[in-house]
C-alpha cells in the first residue's frame, strides 16, 4: 500500500513511534553523518548522501559484550528490551542486512544478531541524489529499492513523501496516516526514481569479476595492485557487508568486535604461523571474499554498491578499477582459489 504524507505528518509519525520504539535516525554529529538514537524529530536529517558508518553497526556492533564471567561461569547478556526502529536507512544498507543474514541466520543462528534483527523495524529513505561513488544498481539494489525494508519513503521534492509499505509490520505503522496516493503521485514518484537511477552512471560487471578472480588467483597482477594499500581497516569497517569479527576477553567480559582481513595479524596464529602473511594475500582476500567465495557459497555477491570503500579510502584506491583491471586469463593449474 502506498500513502502520501507531508513532512510534518512524517515527523508526527516519528514522534508517535518514539513512545514504543527507540528511534534511530541520521543526524549530523561534528560534521559527520551518523545514525543514532534521537529524542527529538528536529534532529533528523531528511536529505543526506549516506552515513559514514553503515547501519550494520546496530546489528553487528563495533563492540558487543557477549558474556560476563562470574566464578568462571559465562552469563549471557540479555538483549535490549525496547523495540527499535531505524528511520531513514538507505536502500543499499537495507540490502546489506539481507546479505549478513546469510552468515548470522544460517543453520547455526547467532542469537545476538538474531534478536536485534527481530527487534528492529527498518524505514528506508529513497536516494534522490546518488553520488559518483554509488553503484547500487550493479548489485541488485537501487536508489529506490524496497528490499529488506518495512517501509520506503520517497521524497517528491515538494515536502511530500510517498510511503510504501513492504511488510505487515510496516503497513501497521503507516495505516491511517496521510492519504492514499493517486495516479499523479505515482507518476511523480516514478519520475523521481528514474532521475535518481539516471545519476548512477557507472555499471559494473560483477559476473566478469567472479570469473577473473577465479582464474587470476595466482596472477602477478596482484603484486602491483596491492602496492598502494596501507593495510588499515577503514574500507572493511565502513563496509555494510564486511562482518569479520574477533572475540576476546576484556577484564571479566567476553567481547565480540569488528576485525579486518587487511590487518597483518588477522590470520596469525599463536605459533607464529601466518597463512596470509603478505599484503598481497590480504589485499586479494577482500575482493575474493566479496566477489568469489561468497558468490560461490551463497549465490550472491557480498557487496551492495554503497561506495563507502571508494569514498573513505585514505589513499583513494578505486576498487572498481582494481576489479576491472584484473587480467582476463584462462584458469591456471591450482588456481581455483
Amino acid at each position: 500500500m502506498k500513502r502520501l504524507l507531508k513532512k510534518d505528518e512524517l515527523e508526527k509519525m516519528v514522534a508517535d513511534l518514539m513512545e514504543n520504539y527507540d528511534v534511530i535516525a541520521p543526524v549530523l554529529k561534528e560534521e559527520l553523518i551518523a545514525f543514532q538514537p534521537i529524542t527529538r524529530t528536529d534532529q533528523i536529517l531528511w536529505d543526506y548522501p549516506n552515513s559514514l558508518k553503515p547501519v550494520k553497526e546496530f546489528f553487528l556492533p563495533p563492540r558487543e559484550v557477549l558474556f560476563r564471567f562470574k566464578q568462571g561461569k559465562a552469563e549471557p547478556m540479555s538483549p535490549a528490551p525496547k523495540k527499535r526502529l531505524i528511520w531513514g536507512s538507505r536502500p543499499c544498507d537495507a540490502r546489506s542486512l539481507l546479505l549478513l543474514d546469510k552468515v548470522f541466520l544460517d543453520e547455526t543462528k547467532d542469537i545476538y544478531y538474531f534478536e536485534k534483527r527481530e527487534n528492529t523495524l527498518l524505514i528506508g529513505l529513497s536516494c534522490s541524489d546518488p553520488q559518483e561513488s554509488c553503484f547500487c544498481t550493479s548489485f541488485g539494489s537501487g536508489p529506490h529499492s524496497k528490499e529488506g525494508l518495512d517501509l520506503l519513503m520517497t521524497h517528491l521534492k515538494d515536502g511530500t513523501f510517498v510511503v510504501e509499505s513492504n511488510s505487515p509490520r510496516g503497513e501497521e505503522l503507516v495505516k491511517g496516516r496521510g492519504r492514499v496516493v493517486n495516479t499523479k503521485d505515482e507518476e511523480r514518484q516514478e519520475k523521481v526514481k528514474e532521475e535518481a537511477e539516471g545519476k548512477i552512471e557507472r555499471a559494473l560487471q560483477p559476473d566478469s569479476f567472479l570469473e577473473k578472480l577465479v582464474n587470476g588467483f595466482g596472477s602477478p597482477y596482484w603484486d602491483k595492485a596491492c602496492l598502494q594499500c596501507i593495510s588499515c581497516g577503514i574500507c572493511r569497517y565502513l563496509c555494510p557487508t564486511c562482518h569479520c569479527f574477533d572475540i576476546a576477553d576484556e577484564d571479566s567480559e567476553r567481547v565480540r568486535f569488528w576485525d579486518a582481513c587487511s590487518f597483518p595479524n588477522f590470520t596469525k596464529m599463536t605459533s607464529g604461523e601466518n597463512p596470509r602473511h603478505t599484503k598481497r594475500e590480504r589485499f586479494k582476500q577482500w575482493y575474493n571474499h566479496k566477489f568469489n567465495y561468497f558468490k560461490q557459497n551463497h549465490g550472491v555477491f557480498l557487496c551492495v554498491g554503497c561506495g563507502r570503500c571508494l569514498r573513505s579510502c585514505p589513499v583513494k584506491i578505486d576498487f572498481r578499477e582494481v576489479l576491472d583491471r584484473i587480467p582476463a586469463q584462462t584458469a591456471s593449474p591450482g588456481g581455483k582459489g
Binding site: 552468515v103 544460517d106 562482518h243 572475540i247 582481513c261 590470520t267 596469525k268 571474499h289 567465495y293 582459489g337
Partner: peptide
C-alpha cells in the same frame, strides 16, 4: 590443518582457504 579460529562456525571470517 591449523588456522586461527575465533567462532568455530564459519562466521568470524579468518580460517578460510578460498571458499
Amino acid at each position: 590443518l591449523e588456522r586461527k579460529m575465533k567462532c568455530g562456525l564459519g562466521k568470524c571470517g579468518r580460517c578460510n582457504i578460498g571458499r
